[in-house]
Design a protein around this nucleic acid. Structure first.
Lengths: 330, 330
DNA sequence: TCTCAAACTGTAATCGTTTACAGTTGATGG
DNA sequence: CCATCAACTGTAAACGATTACAGTTTGAGA
């Protein structure tokens, strides 16, 4: 592989001059021309490790989240990728953390400097994670709920408002008994959506009990299917909100099999508005949490922060949007 | 940030000794203990740029493909990510190339050494791409059709066999007139699937013409919907094969709207067997191209190659599998 | 206790860049 | 033609690790 030295020799100038041409610092037209010719000639590409070592920047941004099986995270990844692709930064993906230990280990390796910034969307809350994030010497953008004591750029979607919109929509279209199929309550989204559901129900003076509140063991269609099949008194409900679209897809499958008519007998609402929602039959009413947009925003926040490390910490809230489709209107 | 020098001073040993402890070369128990203590003390993490510069390895593997909107690539990414996560390598994601130029530019940057290997699944064939891949000084694993003149590790799925299985299945279940909705024929999958379709049809002595062969402008549900709505004589067909599940989902949507009964009036078969397939109504018969498995295999090939650069080039073929669901059997 | 090899340790060069600093060149105006 | 100054260029020192090589310890065996 050609090095900067080889280019310098070929062009008959010093290494420093080559470096300056590459980095756009002043150079005489003549020098520049010769250097560029030599670069082309040798097919020279500057070595990123050497550059990274010297300037203390890797030009890489790390995106970490729980797992790529969840389409909502895929959307987020897409948003981040898009935004980053028009910058000089490369995207490193770290996903599939099966335990808090793994993510802790991963966060510790951040100190190696292979990334200039970290965009993280932690599904679990854990004091160790919060602690490590705060101590990180690099810019961090957190997508999701901020853990206690962490103070970094944040992009936040008001999922409680989304849930509220969904409930109101159901009430307005005449539903009286609303159930909720949640994901694991040990996760951030699970915990927050449960709280939001209960709060909205109370505010609207709607009855709910433990039996109207089911917890699936994962945010997957299979788990949604299993969860709904555990309802003892499905007949008592005329609407179900699911903590994400995948759960809703599973629930819908169950209803189709058991000939529970959607939306006639039961209205179904999901959360995330992934592509799937408009392909199901009936099409699924869903609260769009704007995952792709959040990814874009997170990446933009990161780029700004990298350009301007001392600017005040920002928190951007995105508003969910209720996408009404067939599954909730008769 | 603590450097190896700081650790050495703290432990009262030389830099070399610290390095040796870290890298597991011989050290006296006493030395090792002091070094480890110092490392813990200072929270030292070796700088990856410095290490990469010296040992000429980045411990990063780059995965490149056309775009992340296609769930099949998400599956592949998952497979690669899984396999890599138990290795020392990090995953760099490069996606969303909108043109051959962009991918060429990207391949050129590979010379910077920020990745030790490249796993690539090019959707377009272009001599420049083939040329650049062959000239790359690093291990490459290609997922998909090998371009002319390229000789690297390859994981290949026999999609022609898959298409053949689909057609035979349709014939066996009594279908006589099979149409094909393809994606853009400018892409590798588009071109190959078209050829495979025509070859199988001929072999089985089935009639087909230009009018039974539609080309959607992308591999998306929307494009599938538009494509099927352009069929003049949908009534003449009793089966449609789509070049991927997303196209099939769009086609299915159209059929539902126009009250064309699936599978009674028309059987529908997709390709890829993404999660979506089992959630549609009717559930979608699909040729599983094992994208996730191909990702795993590609990553494993890469790891082997990195461990053993001179071993002979391997080509691994994975067999597709027809997953029969409701959309094709009455 | 002495010898000797094996096991460990330290010194210093090196990886390929960037950049401060000092030196050189060239152009301009008098 | 000279002085002056801006603009450019080259020299050399980093950046933080690894590792060849030479030097030092250690412990076993005589």
């Amino acid at each position: 592989m050609a090095t900067i030295g080889a280019v310098a020799k070929q062009a008959g100038v010093s290494i420093a001059s080559v470096s300056r041409v590459i980095n756009g610092t002043a150079a005489r037209a003549d020098t520049e021309k010769r250097v560029r010719a030599a670069i082309d000639d040798l097919g020279y590409q500057p070595n990123s490790a050497a550059r990274a070592l010297k300037v203390r920047q890797s030009e890489q941004i790390c995106l970490s989240f729980d797992d790529l099986s969840n389409p909502a995270y895929v959307l987020m990844t897409r948003g981040v990728g898009q935004t980053l692709s028009s910058s000089k930064y490369r995207l490193i993906l770290s996903s599939a953390f099966s335990s808090v230990e793994e993510i802790v280990k991963h966060l510790e390796t951040m100190g190696r400097g292979f990334a200039d910034g970290l965009i993280i969307s932690p599904i679990y809350s854990d004091p160790r994670i919060a602690e490590l994030i705060s101590q990180l010497k690099m810019p961090v953008v957190l997508v999701g709920t901020m853990p206690e004591g962490v103070n970094v750029d944040n992009v936040y979607v008001d999922s409680a408002a989304g849930l509220d919109m969904a409930i109101k929509h159901l009430v307005e279209t005449g539903r009286k008994n609303i159930a909720f199929i949640n994901g694991p309550v040990a996760t951030n989204p699970g915990r927050r959506r449960k709280a939001a559901f209960e709060k909205s129900m109370k505010q609207l003076n709607l009855a709910f009990s433990n039996s109207s509140n089911l917890q699936a063991e994962a945010f997957t269609p299979e788990a949604g299917y299993r969860a709904i099949s555990e309802f003892r008194d499905l007949k008592n409900f005329d609407a179900i909100i699911c903590a994400n679209d995948q759960l809703a897809a599973g629930a819908m499958k169950f209803c189709v099999e058991k000939r529970v008519a959607i939306p006639r007998d039961i209205a179904l609402v999901g959360i995330d508005n992934i592509d799937l929602a408009s392909l199901l039959r009936p099409t699924l009413t869903s609260v769009d949490l704007r995952a792709e947009e959040r990814g874009q925003i997170a990446a933009r926040l990161m780029l700004k922060r990298l350009a301007n490390p001392d600017s005040p910490v920002k928190k951007i809230t995105v508003q969910p949007q209720l996408i009404i489709r067939e599954s909730s209107v008769a």
